[in-house]
Design a protein around this nucleic acid. Structure first.
Length: 110
DNA sequence: AAGGTGACAGTTT
DNA sequence: TAAACTGCCACCT
């Protein structure tokens, strides 16, 4: 389908545990492309409707803001999904972001 | 083939 | 401390 980079992004996102979140930059670093965070976001943009579905709502920017919420069907859909996983959000900002943060480099540590 | 874009991030004002 | 500027690189037209 698309590039290996996209598939790698999707694979990592699929590994994000329930109730945890990570950042675009963290994923990029894990893939060895530390400066390609924007491209990671681009990959998520193309992640709609792919099979199997990936938890794109668990990916936010480095400060825990739901920067991509507008790309979900309903603008508040992303927040709803996260809240359903026990993550508290206030004004598009994840509360206790560090507490929920999941760094693939640290947690997967390959 | 060449230039523009962005669901980011780090640096500088 | 907060806002603005600049790199970045994979993707798209």
């Amino acid at each position: 389908m698309h590039s290996d980079f996209f598939r790698n992004v999707y694979e990592v996102v699929s590994l994000i545990p329930f109730g945890r979140v990570t950042s675009y930059g963290a994923i990029a670093r894990y893939l060895g492309a530390a400066k390609s965070a924007r491209t990671v976001g681009y990959a998520m943009n193309a992640a709609h409707g792919l099979i199997p579905p990936i938890p794109a709502h668990r990916v936010v920017n480095r400060i825990g803001v739901l920067s991509g919420k507008h790309h979900f069907g309903e603008p508040n859909q992303m927040q709803i999904l996260l809240e359903s996983e026990g993550i508290e959000i206030e004004n598009d900002q994840i509360k206790n972001f560090e507490k929920h943060f999941w760094d693939p480099n640290q947690e997967l540590n390959l």
